[in-house]
C-alpha cells in the first residue's frame, strides 16, 4: 500500500510537471484528487487496510494529497501567469498614434483678459456691475458733469438713437446707475462694451471695451486711489513696473489723473512706441466730481469717492502683442485659435 502511494505520488508529480495547458491540469486534479481520484480512493478505502497499518497509511496518503494539491496550485499559478503575460503582450499598442479627438477651443482674448482683470479686482473687494449699452444722454453725459458743449457729445463722436438716447460712450453710465441704486459704501467695477463714432482702422473701432471702477465712502482720498491702482497695476504687470500719476482733466472727476506705466517695449528708456517718453498711458482716474455725486443723490459733503477707467482692447493688444485692433473683431479662426 505504501508502495502504491509512492508510485502514485511519483507518477503524479511527473505528470504535473509535464502539463502545459490549464485544461490538462484540471484533468490531473480530477484524476488524483477528484471525488473518484486515485488518492481519494485510497483514503476512502482505508478501512480495507489493517488497523495497525491504517494510521500510517492514512498519514502518508494525506501528505501525498496535500503535496499534490500544492504542486497543482503552483503549476496552475505558473500557467495562469504565462497566459496573462502572453495576453498582455498580444494586446500591446502603439501609444504614439495620434487619435482623432475633439480639440478644446478657447475663449476670445478679450474675455481672457477681462476675466483676469476681474479676478484681480474681486480679490481687492470690488463687485462686478453691468448696465445697458443703449443709454440715456442723462446717464452717459449730463449726470457725469459733461459740459453741454463738450465735443464728446457731438454727432461726430457719439452714436445717437434719438435726442435723448445714445450708445454709451463709456461704462461710467453704470457708475451713475450704481450710485443711484445703492447707498455707500460702494466698491464696483464695470467692464463692458462701449461705442464711439470712429472708423475702423488698426487702432480704432466703433465698438470697443472698457473697464471702469468706482469707490464711494466717507473720506475716500487720492491716497486710496493711488494704492488701489498701484496694487492693480503691479498685479497685472509685475512688481518692477514703474507707475506715474500725472494731472489731467476729465469732466467727471476732480482732481483728475492719468496713469502711465513704464513702456513695455523699452522699459522706460524711450522708444518709438512711447514716443521717446519712456511711459505709456493706460488709465484715467480721479476723485468723483462733487456734481456727479450730487446728481446721484449722494451728499459730497459727507461722502467722496474715486473712479478709474481703462481701455480693455489696448491692454489685450499689448498683452498678446497684437498690432492691429481689427483682428479682435474679425474672428478669423487662424487668429482665434492662438489664445
Amino acid at each position: 500500500m505504501k508502495l502504491l502511494l509512492q508510485e502514485i505520488h511519483d507518477k503524479a508529480k511527473n505528470e504535473v510537471k509535464d502539463v502545459f495547458e490549464l485544461k490538462n491540469l484540471k484533468d490531473l486534479r480530477v484524476k488524483y484528487l477528484g471525488k473518484k481520484g486515485e488518492i481519494t480512493q485510497i483514503l476512502k478505502n482505508l478501512n480495507t487496510v489493517g488497523s495497525d497499518e491504517r494510521p500510517e497509511i492514512g498519514k502518508i496518503a494525506n501528505i501525498v494529497r496535500s503535496d499534490l494539491e500544492s504542486l497543482i496550485a503552483q503549476k496552475e499559478k505558473e500557467l495562469e501567469d504565462k497566459i496573462l503575460t502572453e495576453r498582455l503582450e498580444s494586446e500591446r499598442i502603439d501609444v504614439t498614434i495620434k487619435n482623432k479627438r475633439v480639440k478644446p477651443a478657447n475663449l476670445h482674448p478679450l474675455t481672457i483678459v477681462t476675466r483676469e482683470l476681474e479676478d484681480i479686482f474681486l480679490g481687492m473687494g470690488f463687485e462686478i456691475a453691468s448696465g445697458p449699452e443703449i443709454e440715456t444722454v442723462y446717464n452717459n453725459f449730463d449726470a457725469l458733469n459733461t459740459p453741454l458743449n463738450h465735443p464728446s457729445r457731438d454727432l461726430e463722436d457719439t452714436f445717437y438713437i434719438n435726442n435723448n438716447i445714445v450708445l454709451r460712450t463709456q461704462t461710467s453710465s453704470v457708475q451713475i446707475r450704481t450710485m443711484r441704486d445703492k447707498k455707500p459704501p460702494i466698491k464696483v467695477i464695470s467692464p463692458g462694451r462701449v461705442y464711439r463714432s470712429d472708423d475702423v482702422d488698426a487702432t480704432h473701432s466703433p465698438v470697443f471695451h472698457q473697464l471702469e471702477g468706482l469707490v464711494v465712502d466717507k473720506d475716500i482720498s487720492m491716497s486710496d486711489l493711488k494704492w488701489t491702482l498701484e496694487t492693480f497695476i503691479k498685479k497685472l504687470y509685475g512688481q518692477d513696473i514703474k507707475i506715474r500719476f500725472r494731472p489731467h482733466y476729465f469732466p467727471f472727476t476732480e482732481p483728475s489723473a492719468e496713469i502711465d506705466i513704464s513702456c513695455f517695449v523699452c522699459g522706460g528708456k524711450g522708444c518709438r512706441v512711447c514716443k521717446g517718453e519712456g511711459f505709456i498711458e493706460i488709465l484715467g482716474a480721479g476723485l468723483v466730481h462733487p456734481n456727479v455725486l450730487k446728481n446721484c443723490g449722494i451728499d459730497p459733503e459727507i461722502y467722496s469717492g474715486f473712479a478709474f477707467g481703462m481701455g480693455l482692447d489696448r491692454i489685450v493688444m499689448r498683452r498678446f502683442n497684437i498690432d492691429d485692433l481689427r483682428l479682435l473683431y474679425d474672428n478669423d479662426i487662424r487668429f482665434l485659435s492662438q489664445f
Binding site: 478644446p104 477651443a105 449699452e133
Partner: peptide, 11 residues
Amino acid sequence: SQGYFEIQTFS
C-alpha cells in the same frame, strides 16, 4: 472645452 471658439462681433 467642446471645441467652440468664442467670437466677438459688432452689435
